[in-house]
Amino acid sequence: MDAELDVVSADPPTVRGPEAEGGLSAVLAFAPDGRLRTRIDAGGGYGRIHHAVVEDGRLFAVTATESGRGALFSGVVAFDLASGAELWRKDAGDAALDVTDGRVTMVRPGCNGDLMFGLDAATGDEEDEQGFRDRWVTAGSVLTYQDLVIVVRGGGKPHPFSVYERW
Rank of each mutant, 00 (worst) to 15 (best):
V62E: 03
K90W: 15
L97K: 05
D147R: 01
S162P: 03
A61S: 08
F73M: 07
D2G: 14
M116F: 03
K90M: 06
E127C: 05
G84R: 02
R108M: 02
N112G: 11
R166N: 05
G44L: 07
R58A: 10
V151Q: 08
G75C: 08
E4K: 05
R35N: 09
E126C: 09
W167F: 07
G17V: 10
A3I: 05
D2E: 13
K157M: 12
D6M: 12
G44W: 10
G155E: 05
T144W: 02
V104A: 04
P109L: 11
R37L: 12
G44F: 09
E4M: 05
L59Y: 05
T65K: 11
Y164V: 04
G44R: 11
S83P: 01
G75S: 09
V149D: 00
D147H: 00
M1W: 01
H50V: 11
F30D: 15
A10W: 07
D80H: 09
V99R: 01
Y164G: 01
L115P: 01
T123I: 06
D80N: 09
P158T: 00
H51F: 15
E55A: 14
G75I: 10
A42C: 11
E127M: 07
G93P: 02
D11N: 10
N112H: 09
V104R: 04
I150E: 00
Q130Y: 01
M106V: 12
V54I: 06
A96P: 14
D134Q: 13
F117H: 12
L97M: 14
G124R: 03
T38N: 02
D33R: 10
D80A: 14
M116C: 13
V149M: 03
P158S: 01
A82M: 05
E165T: 14
T138K: 03
R89L: 11
G70F: 00
L81P: 03
E165A: 13
A92T: 12
G155A: 06
R37I: 08
R153C: 06
E19W: 09
